[in-house]
Nucleic acid binder design. Structure first.
Lengths: 183, 183, 183, 183
DNA sequence: AATGAATGAGTATTCATTCAT
DNA sequence: GATGAATGAATACTCATTCAT
């Protein structure tokens, strides 16, 4: 089952580079070193690979949040934790993050349902924190949450390590704008 | 040449719904009412259609900004104008906006160059305004601009008119967070 | 009707360069300066253009032979005339010659019948001369004629003016080999 | 790899019958018994099939010449060998020969380069023999060689076993004309 | 005499997937 | 566990041709 993790990583890289639709299963197989048919021993199909990537990534992300939030009481502090964790995850898993952000509507059926559930849990988590922050009346918490996700999830389209500093610095900027802006 | 505009709209809708790669030229042709070969009378290929959509959309967007900014002196007011215009454009051209946000890396060669130039002009415009705002020292203007774009461009992934209010209200929320957050 | 001659020439050039099948009617139209639909005013279809080229070329070739042979009595001299005329025609109408040699099996139906008749007349003419020459018993006149045509019609595949001298010199070489060889 | 040889033969037949351009890959697939996609498992594209046919044919032809010429000293005898071998090959591989003669300009790029090199080697070989024959001063060896090739390569356009006798007899006629004619 | 607009049928090629081994 | 061989369905695109004007 360790093998699957390796395939997942290679596949994520390929999907991140070319996009899910443009990338062919052949490209994925080549990247993993397996033969085309060999890949099908591990995965039932292209969709399952994408599902596995997204599922794992969201699960990991949620876990890392749980860990980061343990023991934190202050709402502001909690939000900082979430943003830090999100962008730290981005920094370490650029390919996965790109795939998660861009290919979120490619899955259907049971796969979509499962990933959507994780996504909803994630949103609920952050929304809870935002509500604790008691934002200004003219900015609904529901909207605020998505604006925050926008700041974070868009990063993959423009981030350039040399020009923009470390992900932690981006996180800091987003935190400041969001927290101060919301008060 | 009016015919091309109609094709552009239909194509944008198809690309928005299915994604550029998943949508087949046949789907686009069907949506326009033209035959497959008839479509090729107007466009050299799939790429050219995407280019035309993006090119037109960015050009229109830039024009609407120029109009909105005419006569405005105050930096804060300018930023409000830009966000309003961007989200108003989004409201009126959801399909085009989705295509612009999501399919920005599909073009290559000369097409990409031309669209990138427009994009850069747009970013420069907004960046100029952000710099006028004299943001806090711990948030570089370059990063701030992209965080703002993130808030705005991510909207297409979550916006639901019933739940989230009018685009103008979203604009208002983004403006408040960004302006207050940056001070 | 003069216009048709011009089209014929342009089309022959296009067909010679690209081959009949590879060349599109669009290429032909472009070469003539006419619009695609305009070309169809003069010709019913692609086949008819090819037919016209071949028909004209063979007719002209036969006429030039008739002229060249007028008053010549000696069989050897006649054969020299034929070879000279054939290669002179080649020199002046390279494109047409290439098309005639290479695209001889593309026509069908009535077109093919008519061109074949001309071809047969041409072969019969030359064959008559070869028989007059009373070739050696071990070389049937029928075979000899086609070997001669082989020498002449293959020229378009290798002839290079700089390297190989004038067409008249090629003619001379073919005549000498054939006449001396046949005795 | 034996499978490829079978495909090559079928494809050569199809190309010989219809011409390379007119023949569709579907026709070739049907002739081989493979599915359309199955064919692509063996060949990257239509061009590669044509290349393989021409490459193999020329290679075989050159080998059969090498064998035929082994031990022959007399120049005249050598030339007879070459003509015999060429027309014997023609007799056994009519389809390939037709394809080689007619579709010689269809290949481009690396494929063309490789086949051209074989062709040049073949011409050089025959040219060497013609020079040994010390042809008459008024017929340059370079031209003579191509006239000889013309006689031989044109055969596919007219040869009819019933009417014209065996290929060996054609060979005999060509040899006599060429050898006697050159002296 | 000439053309812009349009199309049905066809082209080479690719893709995700399967299966016998 | 893993693969070479094979396929049905789809893809972007081109072509010869037509027709209203």
């Amino acid at each position: 089952m360790d093998r699957k993790a390796a395939i997942r990583r290679s596949a994520a890289t390929v999907f991140a580079e070319q996009g899910f639709d443009r990338a062919s299963i052949r490209d994925v197989a080549k990247a993993t070193g397996l033969s085309l048919a060999g890949l099908y021993y591990y995965y039932k199909g292209k969709d399952e690979i994408l599902f596995d990537i997204q599922n794992q990534a969201f699960t990991t992300l949620l876990e890392s949040h749980a860990k980061a939030l343990a023991g934190v009481r202050d709402a502001e502090q909690k939000l900082r934790c979430v943003v830090d964790a999100h962008l730290a995850f981005f920094a370490e898993h650029i390919a996965e993050m790109k795939v998660m952000s861009r290919e979120s509507e490619q899955l259907g059926g049971e796969y979509a349902k499962q990933v959507d559930e994780l996504k909803r849990r994630y949103v609920r988590l952050v929304r809870g924190i935002v509500e604790e922050l008691k934002p200004r009346a003219d900015v609904p918490a529901g909207v605020a949450v998505f604006l925050l996700f926008g700041m974070m999830n868009w990063v993959y389209t423009w981030y350039d390590a040399k020009r923009d500093g470390s992900p932690a610095e981006i996180a800091r900027a987003a935190q400041e704008i969001f927290l101060k802006g919301l008060r």
